[in-house]
Amino acid sequence: MLLPSFAFSTARSVEEALELWACLPDAAYLAGGTDLLPQLRLGKRAHRNLIDLKRIQSLSRIRETEAGLAIGAAVPLADIARHPAVREHYPLLVECCRRVGAWPLQNRATLAGNICNASPAADTAVALLTLEAGVIAVSPEGERVISVTGLFRGPGQTCLRPGELVTEVVLPHASAGWHGSYQRLSRRQGMDLATVGVLVASSNGGAPPRHRVSLAAVAPTPLRVADAEALLDREGPRAARRAGELARDRCRPITDLRGSAEYRREMVGVLVARGVAALSGPSGIVVPGAGGPGPRTPDPGPQSQGERP
């Protein structure tokens, strides 16, 4: 299917991007394009103008800020997954980035794009929810910080206002130290949207440890399950099964080509319990698509260490 006709503009700065959006009709920001271009092809979205963000230097870097680690909206997932600071402090995000599409897509797709697309099945969303990340959204009215929790409104819908541009995803310092594993079921092992995605994490240090439970592909948006988290905080791993039941009750899955609502609901319970069990050691059962050890992150070669093209 052919791409419909549109004009293409390159923004060199955030300000220019905002100005272009304001003066061009039916404009959309273009980051990796791995969701936008197929949607344009299929007629699911229509834009007469695309504004490319990838030449904006300030969006193409990962930087340490007072608030934490800020990941530019144009940084591809593959670069995030091999960035030393991300790998050291936010391994959950690395794991989730590496499950988005396949690797060539990760070389283009961005973190901001993955969450702004607001797919209920967004793999990175569960990591960002767990890490209590925020996004910095900029518009002519100014800049605001939106928590990822508050960002999602429904399938394909966010609370972003028309023309508002997400410039960075910010991982708070405090979110360093969360560990856990992404339990994911899909129809095949390779590249596929999640049928169910569950991330159970606990914080390092502090006694008793705190817990987070995030779900993907089982509700109109990715979501956290606060009461399951509270239960685990109170009672620890022995509450694994009940935490799973709480999560199961909180999700609102649909039946689609990837699975039935009933199956998804039940799997949330199973995977949450497994996620809790995995916190205290590797899961004893390794099954297709259900997380497990997962592939190693390729060691960056010397020529590509932390480098951006």
Partner: peptide
């Protein structure tokens, strides 16, 4: 094959 009895997934 190995079957995961809780999820029905198999490998």
């Amino acid at each position: 094959v190995v079957v995961d009895p809780e999820t029905g997934q198999y490998r």
